[in-house]
Simulated assay, not measured.
Amino acid sequence: MPNNIIIMAFFSFLLGAKAQNSHIKVLTPQEFKQQITGNSLQLIDVRTAIEFKSGHIKGAKNMDFFSSSFKAQLEKLNKEKPVYVYCRSGNRSNKAAHVLAKMGFIEIFDLKGGFLNWKE
């Protein structure tokens, strides 16, 4: 009987974690580019200011993932509208996407491979 409880708890954990992240979709650069053509867009670059200044996607707002004010900046976004997020390689943006999901954002799109894969 105790083994059944452990097994059930394990599967509940796995399914719960998957459901929690169901709001995050990783898009190829082509998909990302097609979707960011809208007017009411929340496009977030989570790289440092120096990285951002060296080149970024047109219309992106810089919110440094490592900044102490990162979460406060995210709070200013509209949770009802899609959020498109990217970084240099996809690592920070993936972490940022999970932060957004925990904060209650509904639609989160992450650029696969980050800015390194982006071609204007």
Rank of each mutant, 00 (worst) to 15 (best):
Asn4Trp: 01
Lys53Gly: 07
Lys58Arg: 14
Ala9Asp: 06
Gln34His: 10
Gln30Gly: 03
Pro2Tyr: 11
Glu31Ser: 15
His23Phe: 05
Phe52Thr: 05
Thr37Asp: 09
Leu27Lys: 11
Phe11Thr: 14
Ser12Asp: 03
Lys33Glu: 08
Asn21Tyr: 06
Ile24Thr: 02
Thr28Met: 01
Asn39Pro: 07
Ile50Pro: 04
His56Glu: 09
Met8Tyr: 06
Asp45Pro: 00
Ala9Gly: 13
Ile6Pro: 01
Val26Leu: 02
Leu41Ser: 04
Asp45Thr: 08
Leu43Arg: 03
Ser22Lys: 08
Ile57Gln: 08
Phe13Lys: 05
Ala9Cys: 10
Asn39Leu: 10
Pro2Lys: 08
Ser54Phe: 06
Lys33Thr: 02
Phe10Met: 11
Gln34Gly: 05
Leu15Phe: 15
Gln42Phe: 09
Ile5Asp: 13
Lys33Tyr: 04
Leu41Gly: 02
Leu15Ile: 11
Lys33Cys: 00
Arg47Trp: 04
Asn4Leu: 10
Pro29Val: 07
Gln42Ala: 06
Met1Val: 06
Ile57Thr: 09
Ser54Asn: 14
Ile57Met: 04
Ser54Gln: 15
Met8Ile: 12
Ser40Leu: 03
Lys58Gln: 14
Gly16His: 08
Asn39Lys: 15
Ile44Thr: 02
Gly38Asn: 14
Ala17Gly: 08
Lys58Ile: 14
Lys53Asp: 15
Phe32Ile: 12
Leu14Asn: 03
Leu41Met: 10
Lys33Arg: 14
Asp45Val: 03
Leu41Trp: 05
Ile36Met: 02
Phe10Cys: 07
Leu27Asp: 04
Lys53Met: 07
Pro29Asp: 06
His23Leu: 04
Lys53Trp: 02
Gln30Asn: 07
Ile57Val: 07
Ser54Tyr: 05
Ala9Val: 12
Asp45Trp: 00
